[in-house]
C-alpha cells in the first residue's frame, strides 16, 4: 500500500485529526514561548499566606514561609476562594489545618514552631470535635493534660 497507494490524502480526515491536537499545540506553544521568555506559565500561583498554604494542603509552602520568617502563631488572611465559608477569613495556620482535618499538617506546624498552649488547645479541640476529626482531638489531648 505504501508504495502503490497515491501520495495524496483525505484533507477533511486530516483536518478532523488535526483540530483537537492543534488546540493542545497552542497550549504547548504558550508554555514553551513563556518558558523561553523567562515566565513560568501554568506554574506560578499567587503568593499564599501560611494559613492559605495550610488550607490547600501545601505543606512545603507552609515550611518555606515559616523558614522565611512568617509567624506560625499569628492569624493570617485566607482568601474567599480558599475558605470553606467562601468569605475572607483571618485564622491561624493551626486553625486552618484543623479546618481541613489534616493531622499530619497539625503535627508539621507544631514541629515548625506553632505553639499549642492551653487556650489554643481548647479552642482547636472544640473545632476538631465539631468536624469529627477524632485523630486530631486525640493528638491535641495527648499534648494537653488529658482528655476533656
Amino acid at each position: 500500500m505504501n508504495a502503490a497507494a497515491p501520495r495524496s490524502l483525505s484533507w477533511s480526515a486530516a483536518a478532523a485529526l488535526a483540530i483537537p491536537l492543534l488546540a493542545v499545540a497552542l497550549c504547548s506553544a504558550r508554555v514553551v514561548v513563556g518558558w523561553m521568555a523567562g515566565a513560568n506559565p501554568f506554574w506560578d500561583g499567587r503568593p499564599l499566606t501560611v494559613s492559605e498554604a495550610a488550607m490547600v494542603r501545601d505543606h512545603a509552602e507552609v515550611v518555606r514561609l515559616i523558614h522565611g520568617g512568617a509567624d506560625p502563631n499569628r492569624s493570617w488572611l485566607v482568601a474567599s476562594d480558599f475558605s470553606d465559608s467562601h468569605r475572607p477569613e483571618t485564622i491561624t495556620p493551626l486553625e486552618a489545618a484543623v479546618q481541613i482535618r489534616r493531622l499530619e499538617l497539625v503535627e508539621l506546624l507544631v514541629r515548625e514552631g506553632a505553639t499549642v498552649d492551653e487556650p489554643v488547645r481548647a479552642r482547636l479541640v472544640a473545632r476538631a470535635r465539631d468536624l469529627h476529626a477524632d485523630d486530631i482531638v486525640a493528638y491535641l489531648n495527648r499534648r494537653g493534660e488529658g482528655p476533656r
Binding site: M1, A5, P6, L9, S10, S12, A13, A16, A18, P20
Partner: peptide, 28 residues
C-alpha cells in the same frame, strides 16, 4: 488511513473523519 481515504466515497470519508476527530480529541 489518511492516504486510503483519499480514494474513498464521501460518506465513508465523513464517517471515518468523525471517528478520527473523536480519537484525536481523546488523545489530546
Amino acid at each position: 488511513l489518511l492516504r486510503r481515504l483519499a480514494v474513498a466515497r464521501p460518506p465513508l470519508v465523513f464517517a471515518v473523519s468523525v471517528l478520527l476527530m473523536v480519537l484525536s480529541a481523546g488523545w489530546s
